[in-house]
Design a protein around this nucleic acid. Structure first.
Lengths: 295, 295
DNA sequence: TGTTTTCTCTGACTTGGGTCAGATATCGTT
DNA sequence: AACGATATCTGACCCAAGTCAGAGAAAACA
């Protein structure tokens, strides 16, 4: 059912938006070259460019040279390693990129012009909803070390939210002090990775969660957080199941978790996921509710 | 605002759905050839194929020959005009097309697999809403003769709906008897044309409306109908304005219209569009309310 | 120090997706 | 019967996009 609707939408989208979007991006120059202008941004190493766009090294080299001939980019050797080259936009390059941006905007504006403002914002709403659902469909759960920048970004976001939510705030204590708990074999730290190369750098983290060993056969799930923009898409439930699976495959038979009574949606999710309330099992001052589930 | 949201969605869409959709459509054969398989359907004239896809005649010829070499299509001269050629799928061609269809479906299924059923149908809903809004943004209003198949399709749909809505049904009288009223210079018949080549044949008609001369300087707007699938997108308001503009450019100073009290949304629209209720000005037995607006 | 690896670049090549200018056959009209 | 218009096909070309096999320079390593 949803399959045919998606394909139906795709056909229309390619025709109405996709094709044209390419059309005018090629201002005299091959399309690939224009794309590079956007990807270079404030300057990058050529190797990064290649990796991000997954292009052949010879091909990128040629594209860059054609842009250089038009005086849109300039390359210099990387001072720390002069095999590598650093490429950045010239003033003309920046102007050209902004012009492309402007044209792209205008094209969309023209397309939407016949719609009244109410329908325009309706369209924006549904497309944004669709975008978030598509992102949710393509996220991956990835074990990372809790000291990586992504993990720290997620944790800081999580603590910041708790601090804003709890009356009297939230003190995470020594940040990263519990990091060792989330490294195998004692535990895991999982981030919800958004497979979206176009958004940099930490927009690629859509959430996190941790598992740690409490006692033989019993694990604890902690630090579950979903990026505010990614809520309501079923990600929390999938993350919870993923963490349970991780605990199970690490040999645990039961998982516990604690939470604060202010976190109502979380509590609701634990209940519908098969968690039963139990007595306090730790001295976490922020926890009011305690749950357990047999795996 | 909505502009950047649309572009943001486009980037994701191309990456997640668009690109891949092309990828596997090329099963060993150039992509254009695969597309032809779909477009040929139950057989067409080569000329139609060219027109619909807007391709060079030599190019289509070459593509067809390559498909013929793979025994996927067969061409025969059109019996009524042997300059033209009629192309149709062979059994193998039909199988191949169905296989492509299946692969395409499966690709979407795989992509959506991580989403729970509720979110899958949510995605279908928002994409369908987006599709209808995009169609609404790209429709055109087109003067046609009221005897063309499109016009008749629209009128029949309109009458059918009235018949189902009114207590005691609706009798349009001699169908097409009033056709002459909607031909210039006495009047116009306008259809809302959906710019969607992929949908055949009358899905391209999204609504209709007519203007006719009542008395010097006064026109009447009649037969306003929007396809049920295209309602709630602001099309009725745009069509009304278009018909008013047409009446104005035909030299009229005022427009009148009648309606039935069962058509509440229409009545509401007339009121908010500046129409004031007036006395009965005709003997239409189905009309209960009468409106007028100065142009 | 010499050897291997890494990074970029160059030149040669391929493929897909076209365009364009006739050639050929048929049709419609005078 | 002749002439122009129409439909298709063929061959010659074009360009964007990308692959591949080295070459040369610098860095890393043993």
């Amino acid at each position: 059912m949803s399959t045919s609707t998606v394909r139906r939408f795709n056909r229309l989208h390619t025709r109405v938006l996709g094709v044209l979007d390419d059309d005018f991006l090629s201002r005299g120059r091959p399309l690939g070259a224009s794309r590079l202008l956007f990807e270079i941004g404030d300057g990058t190493l050529v190797a990064d460019l290649r990796d991000r766009l997954d292009l052949d090294s010879g091909y990128v080299s040629r594209l860059l040279r054609s842009l250089e001939a038009d005086d849109l980019v300039s390359t210099t050797p990387d001072p720390t390693d002069s095999r590598r080259r650093f490429v950045s936009l010239t003033d003309a390059g920046r102007r050209e990129r902004d012009e492309l941006d402007r044209l792209s905007d205008r094209h969309v504006d023209d397309l939407l012009a016949p719609l009244d403002p109410r329908r325009r914002s309706e369209l924006a709403d549904v497309l944004d909803h669709a975008r978030r659902l598509l992102i949710a469909a393509t996220v991956t759960f990835e074990d990372v070390d809790p000291s990586t920048p992504e993990a720290l970004f997620a944790l800081r976001s999580y603590y910041g939210e708790l601090d804003a939510t709890f009356e009297g705030g939230f003190d995470p204590g020594e940040p990263g002090a519990d990091g060792a708990d989330y490294v195998r074999p004692r535990g895991r730290f999982v981030i919800v990775r958004i497979d979206d190369e176009s958004e940099r750098p930490f927009a690629t983290v859509g959430g996190c969660g941790a598992v740690t060993r409490l006692e033989p056969g019993v694990a604890e799930i902690k630090r579950m957080w979903i990026h505010p923009e990614m809520r309501g898409l079923g990600l929390a439930g999938r993350l919870l199941r993923h963490l349970e699976d991780a605990a199970r495959s690490d040999g645990h038979r039961r998982v516990r978790l604690d939470t604060n009574d202010a976190l109502l949606p979380a509590i609701e999710m634990y209940r519908t996921s098969g968690y039963a309330e139990i007595d306090r099992y730790n001295d976490n001052p922020y926890a009011r509710l305690f749950f357990e589930k047999a795996l």
